[in-house]
Amino acid sequence: MKRLGTWMALSALALGCGDSSSSSQRAELAFAAMVGAEPFVCGQEYSDLGADGASLVLSDFRFYVQDIELKNDAGEWVPLKLDENEFQNGDVALLDFENKCGDLGTEEMNERVVGTVPAGQYDGLRFKMGVPFERNHANHSTEPSPLNLTQMFWNWQGGYKFLRIDSGQFSTNDWRMHLGSTGCEGDAQAGGVTSCANPNRVEVEWDTFDADTDTVVADYAALVDGANLGDDQAADVGCMAKPTDTDCGPLFQNLGLPFGDQPGGTQSFFSAE
């Protein structure tokens, strides 16, 4: 979890940016993928997972985040303006902890989000795991990176996988978690998706978060807490986030998302450490 300093006030960076230059500062958020107490390593086997203590070889761990905001000392939530790079575009960033250990994935990894905020002191963080509606349902074929990765396409619902954690290599013993918006409706006249009954964007908010020392940790063990991984109930392998996929109940609960008759709550997948 150790890393270099984050809240670097870089007045130099803003040299070319006109008036706002004097009043903005750099911001960097560190993310980490864990499986219980162990860091996620692509291709490694983890044991004692879920309600039934299952063992899984995890081969993918990626998610999108949007609407990242920091809380200033006046208690106001201020948007983090993201840099543009291969992992960030507009309001969206991809966190990518896999290194193509298997057939899928990309060698490049990304464990941070970088951008600028107005100069000041910040002590809170909130964000959503997801892709904003307009971009989730735009033409994927013309989107720039990181929204052009076909492995994150989820076209049966006209959107992206917000979260993708796979085990194995597409054998029957796999357990996969793919999360995105479901229950979507479209209209040929409108030319695309017009609404989704289940947006499935995971909301995370911490009143205290020190970006200099804290890391946003996504924990697979916390995600599958209570799930029976050895006993795949529905037709899909693992939880494919379909409203009919009964394997999803405990995972949605841990994400704070409603699922069927089960109400939403507070997520436990992400923690600040």
Partner: peptide, 9 residues
């Protein structure tokens, strides 16, 4: 699938 309305998609 009510969500898929464009051949391109």
């Amino acid at each position: 699938n009510p969500a898929v309305v464009r051949l391109e998609d």
